[in-house]
Write a protein that binds this DNA or RNA. Structure first.
Lengths: 236, 236
DNA sequence: CGCGTTATTGAAGTCCATCAATGGCTGTGG
DNA sequence: CCACAGCCATTGATGGACTTCAATAACGCG
């Protein structure tokens, strides 16, 4: 992992994600304390933040960029268990090791601190543990929703669901619909949806032909008919 | 939900799952306090504990029996997100509603208490919140492991993985292998593994023909070759 | 502008689902 | 206690959705 900027004095107050992640549970005073043990790190696209099985030394908040969480089978099959965006928290674990691999999809900027420091703070700031439990619960709900997707949905429903999910998290209102700048490849999406690249591509084409979406280069998606996309997701 | 036995004075000290669930985080003294707000409820097989979307009023510990957690799509497709056994905790949620349906697979006995009571106790017993975070984290890991199964594994690998998981949780050493008394139907297992009943059945047959398992009636499974089953699970 | 990577499209194949019928528990009532 | 009924599991035959293999096209980066 390449650290390009260490900034012990980085003022959390100016942080773009100050009111997200776990920091939202802290007062300004508490935040000042946290900022003492905080380092900002930058990673190039495709760099690994940590690998499944590594000792869990650091916890992170995503400040900028996109992170991909993956689990691997011994023969190389890969499941993407989630994508993280600015404001998301990274590093929950059981025991002393990370339970998935985290990699940068784009260039990424992370707010890093030692696990030990957080654990120490937990005793003094009960809010923090409440917040962690809340985060874990949310992740759990998210994971269970994905179980439903992977276990029961068709290819079209999966791709539609994934697009709806990304739309809600990183969509921006455009001239004619909601625009997503997809940071990840079709392959990443495929491994997230339990499909193959070609199938994801075919679903995109189908959605385009039906007028539900437009694609703008490799990364741009314009969702012209959000309701129709939601219908196609199988959730309603 | 049918309550057959209310027991305000039930002594948690004698509880069969006293050192599991969240109770393991409590001292005897704390436990005495918890037992004041605790009710033991019994449910018949196939009864619902609660439905997805219900207001989250109660939390539970499973004392005896098996619980099935499910999520449904509007058209009836069902994903089983997990099975609970004695000692497991039930009722984590986000917001004020349950995020999945919980149903009794067998006759079940539950230790029930109001969510509000637990929340009150959280302030006084920090251990309890630690424990809840631990439980949530464990569930999360479990869910992510299941994502890998549903997204990437073949039918045989899924069924083998599920059997390995059940073996570890409810397996008993038998004369010639490890014996599981499967409380759920093939249909439940299918909805858990993202398969159809027929496919699960065919996988059982195949495993039997290969000498990996024996089936004893509808519910009994004898795992003669645990290592071979683990190999077939795709995890090693 | 050109090259490498990623996306798309097409054709063929495979695994699991679906449809259908039989077989076998299990629990109940005579 | 046995017989029956109903559900569940199994097995077989067929079909379909997605994968796999292969080739082309199009980004987008240097």
């Amino acid at each position: 992992m390449q650290t390009t900027a260490a900034s012990h004095n980085y003022p959390c107050q100016n942080c773009k994600v100050r009111d997200k992640a776990i920091c939202s549970a802290l007062t300004n005073e508490e935040l000042r304390e946290l900022s003492k043990v905080t380092t900002e790190v930058q990673l190039a696209a495709e760099a690994a933040v940590f690998y499944e099985g590594d000792e869990n030394t650091y916890l992170f908040n995503v400040v900028a960029g996109t992170i991909r969480l993956t689990k691997l089978l011994p023969d190389g099959r890969r499941q993407v268990t989630g994508f993280l965006f600015p404001g998301d928290f990274l590093g929950l674990s059981v025991g002393n090791t990370y339970v998935y691999t985290a990699e940068a999809v784009t260039e990424v900027s992370l707010c890093r601190f030692k696990r030990g420091n957080l654990v120490k703070m937990l005793d003094r700031f009960p809010n923090l543990e409440h917040r962690l439990l809340e985060l874990a619960s949310n992740e759990l709900v998210q994971a269970q929703t994905q179980l439903l997707l992977l276990g029961q949905k068709t290819a079209t429903e999966r791709v539609s669901s994934v697009l709806v999910g990304l739309m809600e998290r990183i969509g921006r209102r455009g001239d004619d619909g909601i625009v997503i700048d997809l940071p990840m490849t079709r392959g990443d999406l495929a491994d997230y949806a339990g499909l193959r690249t070609e199938t994801v591509s075919r679903c995109f084409t189908q959605l385009r032909e039906e007028g539900v979406i437009d694609t703008l280069g490799k990364h741009g998606v314009n969702i012209r008919q959000p309701e129709k996309l939601a219908d196609l997701s199988g959730d309603q």
